[in-house]
């Protein structure tokens, strides 16, 4: 069965402190990349989906997956990455 890969980006909301991103920003500065003003670290989740489902239905179901499990709306936002 053919399948299609969809990628979801899950990022921390701008209002949420990201100490991991701050630490990486400091490390980049130490390496001479002073142009970096901020770093935020999130996730990319790749989902292989049966290819026989219509694209708009898949998008709706991925939205439900994000709402239910893949992202926590208290701290994160999510969006489909368009390739």
């Amino acid at each position: 069965m053919d399948s299609k890969t969809y990628r979801v980006s899950v990022q921390l909301k701008p209002s949420v402190l990201d100490p991991q991103g701050k630490t990486v920003a400091h490390a980049l500065h130490a390496l001479g990349f002073e142009e970096v003003t901020d770093v935020r670290i999130g996730k990319i989740i790749s989902l292989k989906i049966h290819g026989d489902l219509p694209d708009d239905e898949v998008r709706g179901r991925i939205d439900a997956m994000c709402q239910k499990l893949l992202a926590n709306p208290v701290i994160e936002t999510f969006e489909l990455v368009e390739d």
Partner: peptide, 17 residues
């Protein structure tokens, strides 16, 4: 309990990692 929505908010990585 936070993930279930029984309690509000969320627990995140410690400030000093």
């Amino acid at each position: 309990l936070c993930e279930m929505g029984i309690l509000p908010g969320c627990l995140m990585k410690n400030r000093d990692l």
